[in-house]
Amino acid sequence: MLTILKELWRFLRVRKKLWMAPIILIMVIFGGLLVLAQGSVVAPFIYTLF
């Protein structure tokens, strides 16, 4: 996981697309929550967010 994130950071720097970093970060967090929500443990939390 950490290696992939490091590589992604390097990729964004080389491509001069660091502005994407916060968007990706938010997507990863929300995406992760959505995946977790399938297990229903955090579903109520997601529900309040939306």
């Binding site: 996981m1 992939i4 968007i23 990706i24 997507m27 990863v28 995406g31 992760g32 959505l34 995946v35």
Partner: peptide, 27 residues
């Protein structure tokens, strides 16, 4: 981003899949 706000629904439905399939494709 270029087409926003068009495609917001498909963005939401596709996002978890992209994160898994594209962002973490190497792993």
């Amino acid at each position: 981003l270029a087409f926003a706000p068009r495609g917001f629904r498909s963005f939401l439905s596709a996002m978890p899949l992209w994160i898994k399939d594209k962002l973490f494709q190497k792993s």
